[in-house]
Design a protein around this nucleic acid. Sequence first.
DNA 1: CTGTTAGCGCATTCAG
DNA 2: CTGAATGCGCTAACAG
Lengths: 338, 338
Amino acid sequence: MPQQGRRRHVSITDVAAEAGVSITTVSHVLSGQRPVSAATTAKVRKVIAELGYEPNQLARGLRLQRTNTVALVVPDITNPFYPLIARGLQNMLGPAGVQVLVTSTDADPSVEDAAVQQMITRRVDGLAFAGYQADHRRVAAAAEVGIPVVLLGGLTPRPGIDVVSSDDVAGGEIAAKYLISRGYQRIAFITGVERVGSPANRVAGYRKALRDAGRPFSPSLVVREEISRDGGARAMARLLALRQAPDAVLCTNDVVAIGALDGAKARGLKVPGNVAVMGFDDIEFASLLTPALTTVSIRPLEQGEAVGRLLLERLDGSAPRQAQRILFDPAVVARESA
Amino acid sequence: MPQQGRRRHVSITDVAAEAGVSITTVSHVLSGQRPVSAATTAKVRKVIAELGYEPNQLARGLRLQRTNTVALVVPDITNPFYPLIARGLQNMLGPAGVQVLVTSTDADPSVEDAAVQQMITRRVDGLAFAGYQADHRRVAAAAEVGIPVVLLGGLTPRPGIDVVSSDDVAGGEIAAKYLISRGYQRIAFITGVERVGSPANRVAGYRKALRDAGRPFSPSLVVREEISRDGGARAMARLLALRQAPDAVLCTNDVVAIGALDGAKARGLKVPGNVAVMGFDDIEFASLLTPALTTVSIRPLEQGEAVGRLLLERLDGSAPRQAQRILFDPAVVARESA
DNA sequence: CTGTTAGCGCATTCAG
DNA sequence: CTGAATGCGCTAACAG
């Protein structure tokens, strides 16, 4: 009967004692690091099975200086973009036996700091960091202490640190060009408060497209808000209250775009009839909205896999000493909202 | 300049040496477990800061027999239901300094087994397990070895194991009752292949509602498919091919319902005009679909928090020895699709 | 108020 | 082919 279960974990010592061999031998039948006679191997295996021995990865990690664990630090795991990253990561790392420690930070710099610090103390073998903050002393600290770091989303690249991202400047550019080609005249941009990372790069691309098209850039049309559904709604409200309201709104991601849709609906406006709305990310549900969201696809699963690959290379030392930078080409996905 | 960073982690020994005290003293200025003079405290703190010392949680865990880590094993982190669970878990556990190891299993029993086994070897302090498999010997193994386990989603309760779930029988019942009250005659149910857990319980509730209403139960109307968007589409196709097709379809979760919507659309059918569709979970995007999805809300964030609370209680020993079972009342969220 | 020592569980020299 | 001994970094008796 399933007992209270205070049965202690069995250790390698228990196995050795029961099998009448040394712990060294037990260790070696497990690792195959050196030959062990067939007879002892059999006996040891038998005892292991009987006792239900599970090697303690903590002890192993302490000894080997390797935890087979990587950290994934993201703003919000609830944003559908990040579970895909997590999945991609796991796809690459799982087969290698490495597990993923996930933390949401709400993009709060102090929380981000604390999370990264936690991960350092846990001696993770690698760190995938997605954040919006400009100054990541703590991330740098992780890198300095020898933990391979890969930055997700175009944070200002730091020397020696790998980056995986969509090409956000290009993304902002093709998105704006698409809207221009559709005949929209006053194109606004809802972005985050920080002036770095993907959001900033997308704005940069947007400005470039305007410039190339000979359009004026109006600072009042880029509004900075919290990157969330609510933030998108608030930003949209602000834009619609402008004397010269925009006829199209680019949003820094799909979740924000959904908020913008909320905002337009709250004012009784039709999308794209009265205002067009366009997002970034192409989360799975973008196609299911009404109107179906026009957006920019950035292949999150593949990004997650790329992060995993990079981390793996750093772990087994097969990576070039130089930092790598993997950029994914964005593509406009034209649907109904713009 | 940010170096190659092979700088070794500094250990408590380094700090002690540099500060000219014993490691015991360093340990105690950190833990406050015993008084240390103001002078030494100051000196030690200074050295800690200078050297950038970060206590090694691995060593600490080995010594303390506690990792401050819990595992979250779910079918698919990409299903929006689970990130909310993860978030709720973190909400409760983060402040206590415990981190969450997340794994997706695709509901594959062998993957589930491997994941749980991994978690045991990592000596996680707790395990939150959401799966559909009937037989979880491995989960039982975790419990037996003293790891507090909480089952998510009404898997057959096991003696001594906590459960957090929505009340799925009640959920299935109110959903079916709702459809009956709306006048639907032939109500189908798309569920998973396994005959256990939330999906099975929801079907049970559905059958109860039919029985209470004096309706016949038709086995051909419950179709078993993979629980995914594609599975939902396939199941819907099968239902629509029936000689007597249903006029309403209950789906075991919203993702499946979205697939069912896909399936209806593929046949050129209108929802709810030709077939009504109803889901479970009330994922955030349910309200944004067209038609907006009628579904059953089960409060995932709160469930995640409940799991965290339960785990925390087990960790600090404040929990009753008896297993707890927390059921969340489901509620129909009437929208457009049914 | 502080230091010495043992041991958590394991991999790995070094010695047979 | 096998063992004994060491140490990864830390906490907690035990002993001043």
